[in-house]
Design a protein around this nucleic acid. Sequence first.
DNA 1: GTCTATATCCCGATAGAC
DNA 2: GTCTATCGGGATATAGAC
Lengths: 235, 235
Amino acid sequence: MSRAHTKTQQERKAETRERLLVAAAQLFAEFGVDAVSVDAVAEAAGRTSGSVYAHFGSKQGLLLALLDSWKDSVVTVLLAEVAVTRSPQGQLAAVWGNVTHSPGDESGRWALLEHELWLRAARDPEVAERIRMRNADARRFSSHQLRHWTVAAGAQPSVPPDELAVLVKALLTGLAMQRLLEPDVVTDDLAVRGLSALVGLTSGLPSHQDTPRPADPGPAHRSDRSTTINEGATP
Amino acid sequence: MSRAHTKTQQERKAETRERLLVAAAQLFAEFGVDAVSVDAVAEAAGRTSGSVYAHFGSKQGLLLALLDSWKDSVVTVLLAEVAVTRSPQGQLAAVWGNVTHSPGDESGRWALLEHELWLRAARDPEVAERIRMRNADARRFSSHQLRHWTVAAGAQPSVPPDELAVLVKALLTGLAMQRLLEPDVVTDDLAVRGLSALVGLTSGLPSHQDTPRPADPGPAHRSDRSTTINEGATP
DNA sequence: GTCTATATCCCGATAGAC
DNA sequence: GTCTATCGGGATATAGAC
């Protein structure tokens, strides 16, 4: 019959699918995949559990669809947005800032979902395959960014850009993990210094041995040298 | 009554507790905490689920007890065993080797449990507290090791040892994660180079720019410079 | 495609005998 | 302290009306 009617049906179907995916992402991130029931996802999307099975067949199907519809990893894309800040260190600080204070993400829920999926991938080949594809894309992109950035910033890394991308991602991931449990341990300044060392940036940041303290590094609490973060991020 | 009889009862109790903890560690690591039932743990330990509740009160109690009885993190302790190899790079390679090929651990099951617990800690304050204590101890130890090692190896890190410990752990963790899903991406050589950059070791390893290729780094697959790993480890 | 109702299963935890 | 038996709850997934 009327095409207009059919059109709205298609739209509603698409909208339902989208709402289910969004709801799943939020709930999975906040409480973990296993702790969230199919009913909870459907309810958060304003539907019922039946719609989940109509669209995705199973909870696992929902998870896989979520993986496919996923944007690129938070950790890697950020390298795109660093062109604003002045100094090379400022750009590294911006990268780290985006990892920790990702836009609209309270207390790193996205990162939690990221880890949840990684953990699942380690045990489920089906999930692993999709994660690998995502990683491959992200790595290609970020190595491309790094190749240009290193020459522009005058950095001299000890490995080519594609491998440097792996190192940078590893350090960012590991630091973000420690920071989530113990925020005081991972200062912004430390992250920037770590990144600088990896990419082979020597200028600007003095070695900690330049201001020699005989035996003791002083009582706790190194003053955090305000690494002005997020100058031009989130346009 | 007879003390000898009481003695064997105590022994059996202790043995049961130990067997439950071991079984829990293995099963949790292999399948994940949520995927393993209390019955499964008890059965693997040659007991029944009742014994779990008699000893630990709940599944959560079992998990917390497991955390307390835990040895130090795989990632950090390894710094103790590196004194054998000759060159500084060889020692870094040994550290990385212990991370990847931890003794008696097939395909990084331990690392999986480690991440599982971290993820749980991110959502459960009770778990987080115990993880923090473990981390604090491990960090103290590894920073102590690093302080001596850097002077012995002639390394010049850009941060003091306690902060360097954070960076090293972060890089090792991140690399181990990527390696578990994509082994080819994280070569032993790359790990050693990353660590070298962090700790400020310059000698020995040439910059990749020393053999300049005009535009393209070449088709994939850099030959892995056999970084002889595990010379004197696992005595 | 979406909802309601329900089937089926399994888990965590408890009660009580020994 | 350990086992057997069981309760109560909640999960995934299906069946059928609309």
